[in-house]
Simulated assay, not measured.
Amino acid sequence: MTHTVEPVVIAGSVSVGGQPVPVDVELLWERLQLAEERMRHAVAVRRAAPVRRSRSRGGDRQS
């Protein structure tokens, strides 16, 4: 189960190679939420699909 949390911003930037890089935190949270929605949808589709039975590979065959 995923819990949504509010973003925590520390100084509003990140460091890449020791150099501060400005980040649009709201944009990052929006993209994360979109990715989470896509993942939830994919999981729901997979769970709704009929269960496929796996075939045994020779060991259980009766001749």
Rank of each mutant, 00 (worst) to 15 (best):
residue 1 M to L: 04
residue 2 T to V: 09
residue 3 H to Q: 07
residue 4 T to M: 04
residue 5 V to T: 00
residue 5 V to Q: 02
residue 6 E to H: 01
residue 6 E to I: 02
residue 7 P to F: 02
residue 7 P to M: 07
residue 9 V to I: 12
residue 9 V to F: 00
residue 10 I to N: 05
residue 10 I to E: 10
residue 12 G to P: 03
residue 12 G to D: 00
residue 14 V to M: 10
residue 14 V to L: 05
residue 15 S to T: 13
residue 15 S to M: 08
residue 15 S to Q: 10
residue 16 V to K: 07
residue 16 V to W: 02
residue 16 V to R: 10
residue 17 G to C: 04
residue 18 G to K: 10
residue 19 Q to I: 07
residue 19 Q to D: 06
residue 20 P to I: 06
residue 21 V to E: 02
residue 21 V to L: 04
residue 21 V to S: 00
residue 21 V to F: 03
residue 22 P to K: 06
residue 22 P to I: 02
residue 23 V to Q: 09
residue 24 D to G: 03
residue 24 D to I: 02
residue 25 V to P: 00
residue 26 E to V: 10
residue 26 E to W: 02
residue 27 L to M: 11
residue 28 L to Y: 05
residue 28 L to M: 09
residue 29 W to S: 14
residue 29 W to V: 12
residue 30 E to H: 07
residue 30 E to D: 07
residue 31 R to Q: 14
residue 31 R to P: 01
residue 32 L to G: 12
residue 33 Q to A: 13
residue 33 Q to H: 05
residue 33 Q to W: 01
residue 34 L to R: 13
residue 34 L to W: 03
residue 36 E to N: 12
residue 36 E to W: 04
residue 36 E to R: 14
residue 37 E to S: 09
residue 38 R to C: 10
residue 39 M to E: 13
residue 39 M to V: 12
residue 39 M to S: 09
residue 39 M to C: 08
residue 39 M to A: 15
residue 41 H to D: 12
residue 42 A to V: 11
residue 42 A to F: 08
residue 42 A to G: 13
residue 43 V to P: 03
residue 44 A to I: 09
residue 45 V to S: 06
residue 47 R to W: 03
residue 47 R to Y: 01
residue 47 R to Q: 13
residue 47 R to C: 08
residue 48 A to D: 13
residue 49 A to C: 11
residue 49 A to F: 05
residue 49 A to T: 14
residue 50 P to V: 12
residue 52 R to I: 15
residue 53 R to I: 10
residue 53 R to S: 08
residue 54 S to E: 14
residue 55 R to G: 11
residue 57 R to V: 13
residue 57 R to K: 11
residue 57 R to W: 05
residue 58 G to V: 08
residue 58 G to W: 04
residue 59 G to V: 13
residue 59 G to A: 13
residue 60 D to H: 09
residue 61 R to W: 06
residue 61 R to D: 12
residue 62 Q to S: 07
residue 62 Q to W: 05
residue 63 S to R: 12
residue 63 S to L: 10
